[in-house]
Design a protein around this nucleic acid. Structure first.
Lengths: 116, 116
DNA sequence: CGAGATCATTTCGGTTCCGTATCATTTTAT
DNA sequence: ATAAAATGATACGGAACCGAAATGATCTCG
């Protein structure tokens, strides 16, 4: 699929996806939670709380809470790092992978449907 | 700009923008507020509270609150409809237009920087 | 071994947002 | 004229989230 992405189309794409997320709020993730989720699923591990807090420029409790919430949804998992038991490593789950995959499909579908 | 948008790239784009929004939280808009904002700026008027509530499948108070918040930021404005004084019409502002324009630039910039 | 550093979590007070229900205003229809 | 409908705003109780600070566990290193 080839698209000529211009500002209006880019924003329309973003709008359509935002609306889809609001409408079918399967989980009602905040922007922050989404940023955490996509970081975990798109960037190579390991992912620590401190590392993600630094990356997103938010406090550590904010990351902890985001993981609490998404962990409750089954979208991510946490395990102690056996090498350094102070660390907690964020792990992917099957359910989370499915969710992210569906989000990718949504972006593609919306991009395909853009008025070009 | 031409991009071959594949699932991983699409998600990476979405991730990068989500992170940018979280990082430089100029206004820290929620997904819902963003959906409202982009609807107002990308779709032809008029925009009523009821109409947007229906479009986003959320309750009217949720729209009212989103407009309260973004109105406080100066991103949108509200006026009574003189034709039917029950209605409130959501209006665009210069500040809001600038914000949306910058968001468009961000999407373009991130899309341009994707590993293709 | 022990003091200090590091890491994640919890606690705290405060803010924001949610949906339901209600209210005030205006329009429509009888 | 007046009852009913429609529209947006508000009140309310509950839930989620925020950052700062305190806590508990673990590691580092002198």
């Amino acid at each position: 699929m080839q698209i000529e992405l211009k500002p209006f189309q880019a924003l329309t794409l973003w709008k359509e996806i935002a609306i889809s997320e609001v409408r079918d709020d399967a989980h009602d993730l905040t922007m922050r939670q989404l940023a955490v989720l996509l970081t975990v699923y798109l960037e190579p591990p390991p992912h620590t709380i401190r590392g993600m807090a630094a990356k997103l420029k938010v406090t550590k409790p904010a990351i902890t809470r985001a993981l609490d919430t998404m962990g409750g949804y089954g979208l991510v998992d946490r395990h102690r790092d056996e090498k350094d038991k102070r660390n907690v490593l964020v792990k992917r789950t099957v359910k989370g992978a499915l969710y992210v995959e569906k989000l990718g499909d949504l972006v593609i579908a919306k991009a395909r449907g853009l008025p070009l």
